[in-house]
Simulated scan of single mutants.
Amino acid sequence: MRRPDGSPSLQRLKRRAGVFVRMRRALRWFPPMLADVVRGRYRPVPWPALGWMLAALVYLLSPLDLVPDMLLALGLMDDAVIVGWLLTRVDRALEDYRVFRGERDAAPR
């Protein structure tokens, strides 16, 4: 069985790695965006980004989960998956802000 560079498993791995990039980028850009919004430097307010981040925080802090944390590995994995998905939504909502700041990584990967 040959595995060229364009193999489906390699492409799937690259896509999943992209999720981590988006999560890290959302966490990196959210605090400066929030500071710029509060100081009035950035308008319009990116309400979707604020909503998605609030949802992620509420889910993390809430005692109610899809899978209880008492089931250690599964409980923590469901938190990671759901919060990760929410952070990718935050990243998408911050694209206009990154363009506003003139950053080179403004386009989604």
Rank of each mutant, 00 (worst) to 15 (best):
L54A: 15
R22H: 11
P46S: 05
V45Y: 08
M33R: 06
V67D: 11
S62Q: 05
F30R: 02
L66R: 09
P63R: 13
L60A: 14
P46Y: 06
G40A: 05
A56S: 14
R41F: 05
V37C: 14
A56Y: 02
D36P: 08
G51C: 10
A17R: 11
V67G: 11
F30H: 06
A35F: 07
G18R: 07
L66D: 04
A35I: 11
L27R: 15
V45C: 03
A55L: 15
F20C: 04
M33V: 09
P63W: 14
L34C: 10
S62V: 10
L54S: 10
P31R: 14
A56H: 07
G51P: 02
P48T: 04
V58Q: 06
R41T: 01
V58G: 01
L66G: 13
L61Q: 12
M53A: 15
A26V: 03
D36R: 11
M23D: 07
M23I: 15
F30S: 01
Y42L: 09
P31H: 10
L34R: 11
Y59Q: 06
R24D: 14
V58P: 00
A35L: 12
V19G: 02
A56W: 03
P32T: 13
A17E: 15
A56D: 11
P46A: 06
L57I: 12
V38W: 10
V67S: 06
V19N: 06
D65E: 15
L61C: 12
R24L: 10
R41I: 01
G18D: 08
P31I: 13
M23V: 15
V19R: 09
F20H: 14
A56R: 07
L57D: 01
L34P: 00
G51T: 01
R22Q: 12
Y42Q: 02
W29R: 03
V58R: 08
A35M: 08
R41N: 10
A55Y: 02
R41C: 03
L50Y: 08
W29G: 00
R25L: 08
G51H: 03
P48R: 00
F20Y: 14
A17M: 12
D65L: 14
A26I: 02
L50T: 05
V19T: 13
R25G: 05
R39H: 07
P46R: 04
P46V: 05
M23L: 09
W47C: 00
Y42D: 03
P32A: 08
V45K: 10
L66Q: 01
A17D: 13
R28I: 10
A56K: 07
A17H: 10
L61N: 08
L60N: 09
A49S: 06
M23F: 07
V37H: 04
P46Q: 06
D65I: 06
P44H: 08
L60K: 07
A56M: 08
A55P: 02
G40D: 04
P31Y: 10
R43S: 13
V37P: 02
D36A: 15
V21P: 00
P48M: 04
G18S: 09
L60T: 08
A26K: 02
L61D: 03
V21G: 04
P44E: 07
L57M: 12
F30C: 01
A55E: 04
L57S: 05
R22G: 02
V45H: 07
